[in-house]
Simulated assay, not measured.
Amino acid sequence: MNAGIGAEALARVAVERPTQKAEQIYELLRHSIVRLHMVPGSVISEKELCLQYGVSRTPVREALKRLAEEDLVDVFPHSGTYVSKISFDVAEEGFVIRRALEIESIRRAVRFVTDADVARLDALIADMRDILAREALHEYIEVDDAFHSAIAGISHYPRIWKFINMVKAHLDRMRQLSAPVPGHLAEVTEQHASIVRALARRNADQAELAMKIHLESSFAVMSAMYEEGRYFKRKDV
């Protein structure tokens, strides 16, 4: 259940004040859930979390309450607490919001992009290719997010990425599931390169089209995961 949570992070939680502890625990658990270190359907034990973080039940319950509000945790009174299964409907909603904001972001980025920005994006693509060469697919999503966050920064609307992060948790879990699909991340990497080429040419229409193709084709691959059904809610009520 607790894979991916480092000793350093746990030590920080132990010395924080109650509200800070709740925030730290929330961030650590959210990261573990989104990155599938804690798989959908797995049991969450409040007692184990209290022992692990060296805290009382109050900050743990506050963190779990926030995760439940994001549909990342299911709390059943007198029954138990579980990592929620992935909601396709929520993931699709996150995709629609992300696509709208990123298309706006990329068009604005064309107005402000510099050669140094292009070089920074190219360096991130080089990191992606290195990850693929090493077959360290679990590292890819972090660099992918850094790439898109950088574009938001170039657009001079850096908070766009913060808003996207708020709505893409279920989408990110689908991204993790789709990572091992043969050839998928290699194609994603080349799509990123196409986006950068359009930015370098300062062509807003090409940049928008490249971003749209990238996001929609990636979501199509992720959507195929839904048919397998293992980690998904079969019906949203």
Rank of each mutant, 00 (worst) to 15 (best):
6 G>I: 11
7 A>M: 09
8 E>S: 08
10 L>M: 09
10 L>W: 07
22 A>S: 06
25 I>S: 02
28 L>K: 02
28 L>C: 03
29 L>C: 12
29 L>W: 13
30 R>L: 04
34 V>Q: 02
35 R>L: 13
36 L>H: 01
36 L>A: 04
47 K>T: 05
48 E>L: 10
51 L>Y: 11
56 S>M: 14
60 V>E: 00
69 E>L: 13
70 E>Y: 07
76 F>E: 10
78 H>L: 06
80 G>S: 02
85 K>V: 01
88 F>D: 02
93 E>D: 06
96 V>G: 08
99 R>T: 08
102 E>R: 01
103 I>N: 01
107 R>E: 14
107 R>S: 11
109 A>E: 01
112 F>N: 12
116 A>M: 10
120 R>C: 07
121 L>A: 09
122 D>F: 02
122 D>Y: 03
126 A>V: 11
130 D>H: 14
134 R>V: 02
135 E>I: 02
136 A>S: 12
136 A>D: 10
141 I>L: 08
143 V>N: 07
147 F>L: 11
159 R>P: 12
169 A>H: 10
173 R>L: 10
180 P>W: 02
180 P>M: 05
188 V>S: 01
190 E>G: 07
193 A>P: 04
194 S>Y: 06
197 R>Q: 12
201 R>H: 06
203 N>D: 15
205 D>L: 14
215 L>Y: 14
217 S>P: 12
219 F>L: 04
224 A>I: 13
224 A>L: 09
226 Y>K: 15
227 E>K: 13
235 K>E: 07
237 V>E: 15
